[in-house]
């Protein structure tokens, strides 16, 4: 177990180092002159030079990378160009907002998706299976912005049940008006539900074909027990990995969903940082997302290991 953890953590470390390098290359070395972009028409030679000095852009790239990564290790992500204040002050509130949304979708979506998938996988080719499969297929086919806009059209513009925009007023939290969470969470859930449901169904169908399930049936156990004790634990093992992969994928979905509904989370901040060329903020957010992704996979691996008696790391 210890060996396994060390192996995984060192892999994550190396991965994040590589990712941070890549982010740095894409954001700082390639894009031309940040100072030029920030000043736009007001750019005079003097002001450009001053700004470059202020942003340390006049130093060589590798020095800037090392000082950036050094800061990251100490928890200092630098200052936002646009908001002129430390990134570590801006980001936490946004993380909290996105987390609320993501957890909301996960907690509501995953159990339903797993239940629907199991139900369909146990009895393939029944009417219920067909319905669930069709919903799943449409679900994975609709991009978040299509689902989002359609929900908006129906629930907000036509029925007026929910507010069309999910912005949060200054000084309040998402819980001040929890109804604003409904549409973004539903949208996020759409893809998540479809994906996990399809996977669960496929895994259950596969496990149903195994000799040990046959053994369980031929022991004369009632179907309910066969499914709960013999099928589910084995079908859930690969599903756990899928859920973790999806968590990372959901981070991508957040960018879209938060922009569709103007919800002030990480995704919206990220897109804004791209639009305003707020490079330090963009770097910090990208690294944060990569790290979340990597660690959610680690958690999945650990859960897999804990639940699978066949794997015991020496």
């Amino acid at each position: 177990m210890l060996r396994f953890l060390i192996a995984r953590l060192s892999t994550i470390g190396v991965t994040l180092l590589v990712v941070s390098g890549a982010i740095f290359v894409v954001t700082e070395i390639l894009p031309g002159d940040v100072a030029q972009m920030m000043l736009k028409k007001e750019a005079t030679e003097e002001r450009l030079a001053a700004l470059r000095a202020e942003l340390n852009l006049d130093r060589p790239a590798h020095v800037r990378y090392l000082s950036w990564i050094g800061g990251v290790v100490r928890g200092d992500f630098g200052d936002s160009y646009v908001q002129k204040r430390p990134i570590s002050e801006i980001v936490p509130r946004r993380i909290a907002h996105s987390l609320v949304l993501a957890l909301f979708a996960l907690v509501l979506g995953v159990p339903v998706a797993v239940a629907a998938g199991v139900w369909a996988g146990v009895r393939p080719d029944t009417l219920w299976d067909r319905v669930v499969s069709t919903v799943g297929l449409v679900g994975i086919s609709l991009p978040e912005f299509v689902t989002g806009v359609m929900l908006m059209l129906v629930l907000a513009s036509t029925l007026h049940w929910l507010p069309p925009s999910s912005h949060i007023l200054a000084g309040t939290t998402p819980w001040t008006r929890p109804e604003i969470l409904v549409m973004p969470a539903l949208t996020l859930m759409g893809v998540l539900f479809a994906y996990i449901m399809r996977m669960t169904r496929a895994n259950v169908m596969e496990v149903m074909q195994t000799p040990y399930v046959r053994t369980a049936v031929l022991k004369g156990l009632p179907m309910r027990r066969v499914i709960l004790r013999h099928v589910l634990p084995n079908a859930m093992l690969p599903t756990i990995t899928i859920i973790a992969t999806n968590f990372g994928w959901m981070l991508g979905g957040l960018i879209i969903v938060e922009n569709v509904f103007s919800y002030p989370g990480l995704g919206q901040l990220l897109l804004r940082s791209i639009q305003t060329r707020d490079v330090p903020l963009l770097e910090a957010l990208s690294l944060l997302i990569a790290a979340t992704y990597a660690f959610s996979n680690l958690v999945a691996d650990l859960a897999y290991t804990a639940l699978n008696p066949r794997i015991r790391y020496a």
Partner: peptide, 15 residues
Amino acid sequence: AMVYQDPATSLTPTM
């Protein structure tokens, strides 16, 4: 009752 060809796959691995 029945006894199967491949005992390794005939027992539920998680139990």
